[in-house]
Amino acid sequence: MLKLDNVSTFYGKIQALHHVSLEINRGEILTLIGANGAGKTTLMMTICGTPRAQSGHIVFDGRPIQQMKTSDIMRQGLAVVPEGRHIFSAMTVEENLLMGSFFRSRNEAAAQLDHVLTLFPRLKERFNQRGGTMSGGEQQMLAIGRALMSQPRLLLLDEPSLGLAPLVIQQIFEIIERLREEGVTIFLVEQNAHQALRIADRGYVLENGSIVMSGSGDALLNDDNVRKAYLGG
């Protein structure tokens, strides 16, 4: 579905990604784990076109997207939940969600709104509340819900567990699994390696901007090196 081939990204002179190649298949949860500064977020943002990949190819559904404008890439059927949620804090939950379906017709948006609200009953309770007045977990749900409003085929999630309580993280991961059942392909970037690998079909380990290991979620979870480095022995 999405294929990265030999992608390198630079911030000025500093190389953040070294010839990264990975592939996301339809209907799976793919997770990318790595330490702080390994380049996880950079990789995700490179897919979105900011920063732009300096070399290599990014192909989504058979179409090369590495030269497209960010705004055009985001209309191709992939959606991103940026790190740190970035909800519109002065807007209500409803308006936040409707911003997600900006390029959809009114009917499509209404149908998708119903769907998102059944996925996140909590958002229905908070429907007319300002985004900024909600708790971190609710905001994360809102960010995911907003991304889903565009009916994406591929959802990119950047650290959805960031700064949330364990119980809330649990809920978020349950929802991610639900989304897979509905046929949304998910690319999950996580620090929380244990939980991410448990629900993932496959995983990649990123270290200093290169992929050092890949395999099924279970295989990585039981790998000695991964255990030592990311799961605390």
């Binding site: 939940v81 940026p82 911003m99 900006f102």
Partner: peptide
């Protein structure tokens, strides 16, 4: 109008939703 307001609030979010700032 809503896009203006969204842009004023959070440009990154706008870009992530496919809006062209």
């Amino acid at each position: 109008g809503r896009a203006w307001e969204a842009l004023r609030e959070d440009e990154i979010a706008c870009r992530s939703l496919g809006l062209n700032p």
